[in-house]
Simulated assay, not measured.
Amino acid sequence: MSTEQPHPGRHRTGDGLVRRLVAGQFPQWVGLAVRRVPSGGTVNAIYRLGDDMTVRLPLAKGGAEDVSREQEWLPRLAPQLPTAVPELLGAGAPAEGYPWPWSVYRWLPGENPEAGALREPVLLARDLAGFVTAMRSITLPGAPVAHRGGPLASLNAETRAAIEELRGVPQEDVDCDAATAVWEDALRAPGQDAPPVWLHADLMPGNLLVEGGRLTSVIDFGCLGTGDPACDLFPAWNLLPPEAREAFRRALDVDDATWARGRARTLSQALIALPYHRGTNPSMARNARHVIRAVLRETGAC
Results as ranks from 00 to 15, higher is better:
residue 295 V to S: 07
residue 220 D to A: 11
residue 163 I to H: 02
residue 279 G to F: 02
residue 67 V to Y: 00
residue 10 R to D: 12
residue 184 E to K: 06
residue 259 W to F: 08
residue 266 T to L: 05
residue 184 E to P: 10
residue 56 R to K: 14
residue 181 A to Q: 11
residue 192 Q to F: 00
residue 169 V to E: 14
residue 202 D to T: 13
residue 184 E to N: 12
residue 223 C to R: 09
residue 149 G to T: 07
residue 32 L to H: 10
residue 52 D to V: 13
residue 31 G to H: 05
residue 197 V to A: 14
residue 155 L to W: 15
residue 18 V to H: 04
residue 164 E to T: 12
residue 137 S to D: 14
residue 47 Y to S: 08
residue 90 G to D: 01
residue 46 I to M: 13
residue 87 E to T: 15
residue 31 G to T: 11
residue 271 L to C: 08
residue 74 L to I: 09
residue 46 I to R: 01
residue 13 T to N: 10
residue 216 T to R: 15
residue 260 A to N: 02
residue 174 V to K: 08
residue 157 A to I: 01
residue 295 V to Y: 02
residue 100 W to T: 11
residue 157 A to R: 13
residue 91 A to W: 02
residue 95 A to Q: 12
residue 261 R to Q: 04
residue 197 V to R: 13
residue 221 F to S: 06
residue 149 G to I: 02
residue 299 T to K: 11
residue 245 R to F: 03
residue 150 G to Q: 08
residue 166 L to Q: 09
residue 152 L to A: 05
residue 244 A to N: 08
residue 195 P to M: 03
residue 216 T to V: 15
residue 176 C to M: 09
residue 38 P to V: 11
residue 15 D to R: 14
residue 243 E to R: 12
residue 2 S to L: 03
residue 263 R to W: 00
residue 267 L to V: 02
residue 195 P to F: 00
residue 141 P to H: 09
residue 225 G to C: 12
residue 257 A to T: 01
residue 14 G to S: 09
residue 79 P to N: 01
residue 145 V to N: 05
residue 64 A to R: 03
residue 218 V to Y: 03
residue 169 V to I: 15
residue 255 D to E: 14
residue 32 L to N: 00
residue 156 N to W: 05
residue 256 D to E: 15
residue 11 H to N: 02
residue 114 E to F: 06
residue 21 L to V: 10
residue 103 S to I: 06
residue 293 R to T: 15
